[in-house]
Simulated assay, not measured.
Amino acid sequence: MNTISVFAKTILPLSQTFVRDHILGIQNFPVEVLTCRNSEPSRILPMSAVEMGGNRREAWLSALTGRVNKDASEVLDRSSLVHAHFLTDAAFVYAATSRRQIPLVVTAHGFDATAYRSARLRERTGIISEFRRKSIIDYASSIICPSNYIADCLEFESNVPRGKLDVIHNGVADRFFNHPLSATNPNCLFVGRLVEKKGCHHLLAAWAPVHRQHPDAVLHIIGTGPDEKALKEAARPLGGSVLFHGAKPHEFVEAMIVKARVVAVPSSRARTGDNEGLPIICLEAMAAGKPLVCFRQGPLLETIREGASGLFAKEGDALDLADKIGFFLASQEVSHQYGKSARERALAKFTLNAQMKNIEAVYKRILYAEA
C-alpha cells in the first residue's frame, strides 16, 4: 500500500486548520506526518508527528544535506510520496525527498506564491527557501494551488509551468452545513491574523460609519499578529462596539461564525506582494449560511457569487465596505436569503470531501505514472 507522508514545518499553528483537515481527510492511503517542530501534537492531531530535527541547526542541516534522524529516515523509507505544505517550507524536506527519489507534491497557500522575492528573503528561513525554490519547482510532480489566482501568480511571477499546477480549492467540513442560517443579533465577524494583507485596518475605518447607522451592532475580531497594538488603538474611539478576542481555538471561531449576521473579509495584496490563497474563513462562513463582504480582488473573486451569496466592495474603499456591511446588518431577512445562497454555493464547490478526492486523484496520477 502506498504511504503518503505529509510535511508541515510546525505542527500546528491554530490558523493552519487546512493542514489538519488535509491530514485527517486522506481516506485511501496510509498517512504519516513529518515536521521540523512538533508543538502540541495531542491537541491538534490523533497521530504523532515525527520530527526531522529537534532544533533549528538540525533543520537547516537537513535542508542543506538531506540527512535526517533515524525516525524521520524510517518514515521516508516507507513513503511512496511526500506532500509538503508551503512552497517556502518545502525547502526543509526537499533534499531528503529528492535523495531518495520520492515524488514530491507541494501545496502553495499565499505568501509563498504571491510575496515578492525581496519579502521572502526577509523571512527567518528566507535564505534557504530561496536557495531551494527553483529546485523544488523543477523536482515537484505537482504544485497544488487553492485558487486560480495563486496558479496565475506562480505561472507569471515565478515561471512555474502551467502543466505542473493543479488548482484544488480548500474545503470545508460537513458539520458547518448543519448550523442555522439566521443570526438575530447584528454582529459582524472578522477572523484572521492581524497583518496588512488581512485588511482589518480597512474594516475599522469602515466601522465608524457602520456604528453610526447601526449603534447596536458589534464587530468581533478574532486573531492576533504584529498589527494588533495599532489596531486596538485605532478602535479605541469606537468603544464597546469593537471586541478583540485574540487567538482562539477553532471551536470558538465556529461558534462565533454561527452567531454572526455577516462575515467581513477585507483582504487585499500587501506592499510586500503577500495575498490570500483562498481564505478558509470564507468557505466556513458560506457553509454556515453567512453572507460575505469582501474586497473585489484576487482569490476573493472565486468565492462568492455577487448579489446572491455576498457583496464585493471596491478594494481599499472603507466607505463602500461600510455600505455593504450595513446592507446586511439592516435586515435579518436579507442576510438569511444571501446566507442560503452562500451555503448552496459552498455545497456545490467547496466541500472538504470533494477537494480531498481531487487531491487523492493527484496522488494516484503520480504514483501510477511512477509505476
Results as ranks from 00 to 15, higher is better:
S135K: 13
A346R: 01
R37K: 14
N185P: 04
H85F: 13
Y149H: 09
D89W: 00
G199P: 01
R124H: 02
T107H: 07
A235Q: 01
G277C: 04
K364E: 14
C145K: 07
Y368K: 14
F244D: 09
E370S: 11
G307F: 02
D89E: 09
I221D: 00
I150K: 06
K324S: 05
V31W: 07
I143V: 15
V362E: 08
Q213A: 12
S118P: 01
L203R: 00
S142E: 15
R343P: 06
R365A: 13
P41D: 15
V262E: 05
A183Y: 14
R100K: 14
T3R: 06
K248G: 06
L292C: 11
G126A: 01
S79H: 12
R261S: 04
R365P: 03
S335E: 03
T10M: 03
C153T: 02
H336M: 14
V262Y: 11
A247Y: 08
V253L: 01
Q27M: 04
V93C: 10
T107E: 07
V82K: 09
D320V: 01
V172M: 12
K9E: 09
L24K: 15
G298F: 00
G298W: 02
F156Q: 11
L319M: 08
G223N: 09
R37S: 10
Q337M: 06
A285H: 03
E276N: 05
R162P: 02
P279W: 01
L64T: 04
V218Q: 09
V33K: 08
G25L: 11
L347E: 12
F350T: 05
R365Y: 03
V191M: 05
R236S: 03
V50E: 09
V263P: 00
E74L: 13
F156R: 09
R57F: 03
A173K: 10
L238D: 04
L24D: 14
D21M: 13
R133E: 14
L76N: 14
N178P: 11
A346K: 10
L104N: 10
A84E: 10
P103I: 14
A113P: 05
V93I: 14
M47S: 02
A260I: 04
L231P: 05
L64C: 07
L87S: 03
F252K: 12
G25C: 08
N353F: 04
L81G: 01
A140L: 08
S15G: 10
S80Y: 12
L34F: 12
A49I: 11
A288R: 00
S268I: 00
D323M: 02
G110R: 01
I168C: 04
T125C: 01
E344G: 08
L34W: 14
E228R: 06
S142K: 09
L367W: 11
A361K: 15
G171P: 14
A90L: 05
F190V: 03
A217H: 00
I144K: 10
A49D: 09
V362G: 15
F29R: 09
H220T: 08
F312S: 07
S62D: 05
D112C: 12
F92H: 05
E254H: 13
S335A: 15
A8M: 08
E251S: 15
A346D: 08
I222V: 13
L300C: 03
F18T: 12
S241I: 02
A59I: 01
R56F: 05
S98M: 12
Q101W: 06
P41K: 14
G273N: 00
F177E: 15
A371R: 15
Q213M: 11
